[in-house]
């Protein structure tokens, strides 16, 4: 059988914050150019797992891991991994849109500039391509030099996605990207996520199960640090195999 093309994979991944274990023997495979959703009750470890993928947990003191994490088959837990490069390849979008207090344009080209791009024409191209990729170009093209914070919440979130795209990633991690948005802004982001998978692999953490059902191809259900079930999204929502999953998604929990 042909092996599935995985963008990310963990094997026997365990993670501790000090002595508290937050991930327990997680084996997950994130298929390339697909949208994978992680669902589960608060505190089950979704954000923690997401942060493992681009080594954001390195920033947390006392956080230790064992097991392996593979990015396109390559181990990324070791010292030799270039974390700056890794975070260029694996971008992250957070719950609260967090544009810098600068213009829309400056926000988008911030990353490329940090990584050494100086040519104005090239920066303009990157800005346009990224803003188009994040489906916000038409809304901001006439006011690229206005303050980013003057945008609506949904626009700010798409600007943050554009900022992530500007450094040329192939994986985009999203941690509850719509939690702070109204339904219309949410629908726009969801639509964008579906478009992004032509070029990118997307992993999204969401506490909104309907959202997971709408946007994702695969869904992983986590509970108390473990990945309980992982399957194609229609299977998870129509006939999950594990009773825990069933109870959670049907709202029969606790």
């Amino acid at each position: 059988m042909k092996q599935q093309d995985n963008a990310l994979e963990t094997k026997a991944l365990n993670l501790y914050y000090g002595s508290a274990q937050a991930l327990i023997d997680v084996d997950i495979q994130i298929p390339k150019n697909q949208v994978t959703a992680l669902i589960g009750p608060s505190g089950c470890g979704k954000s923690t797992l997401l942060r493992c993928f681009n080594r954001m947990n390195d920033l947390i003191p006392d956080c230790t891991i064992s097991g392996s994490i593979l990015y396109h088959g390559e181990e990324i837990t070791g010292r030799s991994t270039d974390v700056v490069e890794l975070r260029k390849r694996i971008g992250m979008v957070f719950q609260q849109p967090n544009p810098f207090p600068k213009s829309i344009y400056e926000n988008v080209i911030y990353g490329p500039k940090v990584h050494g791009v100086r040519d104005r024409k090239q920066l303009d191209e990157i800005a346009e391509k990224s803003l188009k990729g994040a489906a916000i170009w038409e809304e901001v093209r006439e006011r690229l030099h206005d303050a980013a914070r003057g945008l609506s919440g949904g626009q700010q979130q798409r600007l943050c996605i554009a900022r992530t795209l500007s450094v040329g990633p192939d994986i985009i991690l999203m941690d509850e990207p719509c939690s702070a948005l109204d339904p219309i802004a949410t629908a726009k982001i969801e639509n964008l996520i579906t478009e992004l998978k032509d070029e990118y692999t997307v992993v999204i953490v969401t506490h909104n199960m309907q959202q997971a059902a709408r946007v994702s191809d695969y869904t992983g259900f986590m509970y108390m640090g473990r990945l309980i079930e992982f399957d194609s999204t229609p299977v998870i929502f129509e006939k999950p195999k594990e009773e825990l999953t069933e109870n959670y998604i049907t709202g029969r929990f606790g």
Binding site: M209, Q210, A213, E238, K239, P240, T245
Partner: peptide, 9 residues
């Protein structure tokens, strides 16, 4: 209620 899984079936 957008039922899923057993509820939907």
């Amino acid at each position: 209620h957008q039922p899923v899984a057993y509820d939907l079936r």
